[in-house]
Computed example of a mutant assay.
Amino acid sequence: MSTDLGDFLRSRRARIQPEELGLQAFGRRRVPGLRREEVAQLAGVSVDYYIRLEQGRGQSVSDAVLDAVARVLRLDEVEQAHLRDLARPHKQEERPRTAQQRVRPGARLLVESVSGPAFLLGRCMDVLAWNPMGDAVIDFSGRDDRTRNQARDAFLNPAAREFYLDWQAVAAETVAYLRLEAGRRPRDKRLAELVGELSLRSEEFRRLWADHQVKEKTYGVKRMLHPVVGRLDLGYETLALPGDPDLLLVVYTAAPGSEAAEKLAVLASWTAAPSLG
């Protein structure tokens, strides 16, 4: 992971101009943003120490140094946590994981009890369970286990670019979440295989992966072009299940009386209608 740490720090240095921090920009700069010497100076460490950190040779780096570097590079809370994950991969304890992640009955009942569209997201962005409204919105049941993965769907399914009206934002958020997970679980073979597959098959994924953006999957808005009800703008909330950090409950929301709520009601009637086949 030393390469990831160095690449992450260089990408953060590149986005800050010396003038923003009150430094004089002397001489010709071969790379954009702050130099390593400037980061070291502002963080209060020696240049050699900072260079070792970028090279992944700072395994004993203190919290104080990481905090100082984070302050200079203006890292947000998620980026600070990612920096610690990359700087101290040896301190991360990987729990034993089965090849196939399973959903406990209680969690399955939970997602089925939600009235709005909902699904359970597992490791590597696999969709493991969903309720009827979630299926009506995303059509999970029409896919197999391999394609029922949000990352593969975003980059390898051509229909995703039409379904998500803000596909570029969805793609960027997907990569930023995978980056964060890769820092947390550097020895996760299946996650590494997924990143490798997407890197080989998608130029857009490679470009976004190289940006080293990191982001939690928390809340936001998804703008979709649904084949039955047309444009559908839904909020979403993501909740980690207590006792199982590898399982996330994702719920789509619509304000009562809104156009989106009316369209969800149409979908609810559509899914409840008896089959004529």
Rank of each mutant, 00 (worst) to 15 (best):
P158L: 11
G56Q: 11
E216L: 12
A268E: 15
P117D: 11
L180C: 07
M133C: 04
I138N: 05
T253G: 09
R36P: 00
D139M: 10
Y49L: 07
M125R: 13
Q55H: 08
F205A: 01
E262L: 05
T271F: 09
W270K: 08
D188V: 03
A240E: 14
D126M: 02
Q24H: 14
A255P: 05
V69W: 03
H90R: 15
A260C: 00
G142W: 10
G230Y: 05
L241T: 02
W130E: 08
Y236A: 03
V31P: 08
L73C: 10
H82F: 14
D246R: 10
E204W: 03
D244Y: 09
Q213S: 10
G106R: 08
G142H: 12
R88Q: 11
V214D: 03
L234H: 11
A151I: 03
E173S: 13
P158C: 08
R206H: 04
Q92A: 12
G58A: 07
G183Y: 01
R28W: 11
E94I: 08
Y50M: 01
E20W: 12
D166L: 06
D85I: 02
E94G: 14
A192E: 11
V127Y: 01
L200F: 10
P96F: 02
D85P: 04
W167K: 02
A25T: 11
K91M: 15
H212V: 04
A260S: 13
P245W: 07
E112H: 03
A87I: 05
A99W: 13
H82W: 06
N157K: 02
R123N: 06
R95V: 12
R10I: 10
S46G: 14
Y236D: 07
E216H: 13
N157C: 12
D153H: 14
R35Q: 06
A151R: 01
L276R: 12
R30G: 08
Q41P: 00
A81R: 15
P227F: 09
Y219P: 05
T3R: 12
L165P: 01
R30T: 05
A169P: 04
R74W: 09
S11L: 13
D244I: 07
V103Y: 00
E216K: 13
L66S: 12
D76W: 03
V221Q: 15
H212R: 15
A118H: 04
W209L: 06
D135V: 07
V228G: 02
Y164S: 11
A255Y: 12
L249N: 00
R108V: 05
R57K: 12
D4F: 00
D144K: 01
T147L: 08
V221F: 06
G106D: 11
K91G: 13
L208H: 00
R223H: 15
R223W: 11
V47K: 11
L194Q: 04
L73F: 11
R74E: 09
S113Y: 02
A272P: 04
P117M: 06
A272L: 03
L239Y: 14
V39L: 13
R88D: 06
R148T: 05
P242W: 09
A159M: 14
A240T: 14
A68L: 07
L66P: 05
R88E: 07
S115A: 13
T253H: 09
C124V: 10
K263A: 09
R108G: 00
